[in-house]
Write a protein that binds this DNA or RNA. Sequence first.
DNA 1: TCCGATACATTCACGATTGTATGTATTTTT
DNA 2: AAAAATACATACAATCGTGAATGTATCGGA
Lengths: 216, 216
Amino acid sequence: MARRTKAEAEETRRGLLDAAERIFHAKGVATTSLEEIAAEAGVTRGAVYWHFANKADLFMALFDDAPLIHDDLLAPLALSEHPDPLALVEELAIGALTLLAGDARRQRIYTILTLCEYRDEFGVVLQRTLETMDRAHAQFASAFAEADRRGILAPSWPHGTAAAAFQWLLHGLIVDWLKFGRRFDLVERGSSVIRAQFQAYRHRCVPAGIPVLAPA
Amino acid sequence: MARRTKAEAEETRRGLLDAAERIFHAKGVATTSLEEIAAEAGVTRGAVYWHFANKADLFMALFDDAPLIHDDLLAPLALSEHPDPLALVEELAIGALTLLAGDARRQRIYTILTLCEYRDEFGVVLQRTLETMDRAHAQFASAFAEADRRGILAPSWPHGTAAAAFQWLLHGLIVDWLKFGRRFDLVERGSSVIRAQFQAYRHRCVPAGIPVLAPA
DNA sequence: TCCGATACATTCACGATTGTATGTATTTTT
DNA sequence: AAAAATACATACAATCGTGAATGTATCGGA
């Protein structure tokens, strides 16, 4: 083989990233060799070492332009000025689940991200994940704080606590779904739990059988 | 070296398991060689291959008698006949967090279990994890169902939904804590979120500012 | 059109691990 | 007390993956 066009070179680079994504997801990052990735992409290891320094570099390049779940959630949240922040976050969360459920690439990326062993050079990705999570938490906490100011959030939920509960719930749900082979309907089960959770966040909850406003 | 007593042999076996636990936790399962484990235990690879068939066998033996979080939670739940199942689960969850926070071995085991790549021969552990999670869910769901029958659970929480939310919340919390280097106080933050969550599960929640029983 | 840079393929040298085979000093058994 | 099994250590062969070095056909620019 010989030199290709810049466009063709970019194709093989993309092909390598796609191949890595599929194989990393199928059999784990640690056990995959660059030879396998090259073969899956229809090239040799020479191409891999041309485009990437090594496996860690290829691994990190995977996430440079990959769609992350928290970004799906946070981008609309940041700019929006909704009258009911709780309803907004609720809808955004369900939207993110729907998006994830229908996008195999997002599923693979997020599975690799949450299920691989972050050590040594790979630790950079862990660091970036942590920063994303922290940004997400700040955003959520601010939304819940705004809901609190507007009297929508139940008094039993400090906004930081509510945000943490929401984030852990969402993450636990997604990890469960991805890790154990998507054995339940993500959108259906996820939605029902999220709906119930946000109903619990609101403070217009009424004890059953007892009239709120007894006749004077 | 030569043959040791049965008791001494059992000691070296334990030593190998302990060494593997520490090194797996420190630098990941995939990147650790049997040589490193043997060295950490003060023996050679010969001892490793005498006691275990290979790395996968050693890996699985790690979890055969290891303390799992769900077992900490479930064992007391199964036999107990508490008048308030919600309070019981709440206390057990906080107790499990406290136990985990004070037990480095549990932390290592659970970190390895949740952060390693389950592939090939290691998949058996994933399968067993899944079964444990399912058993846990059944137990929780039954406790929430009992709470529902006794009128303790809020009507907005179907017991299956409540159980799922609790489990995902708890798992998300623990994974966050372990994965990102225990950067917050597990018991303190975890307790406050769990307390708030269980307060939301109960249906004796009252809208603020409105008297429940207005004077007739 | 010619030349240097590019985009790979091919080859090679090396270390790291693995599994096994063998050696051997004890321990246990008989 | 001799024999057999045990609990390792040591030595060895074979594989696998990496990284770098080298080859080379083509592309883009002067």
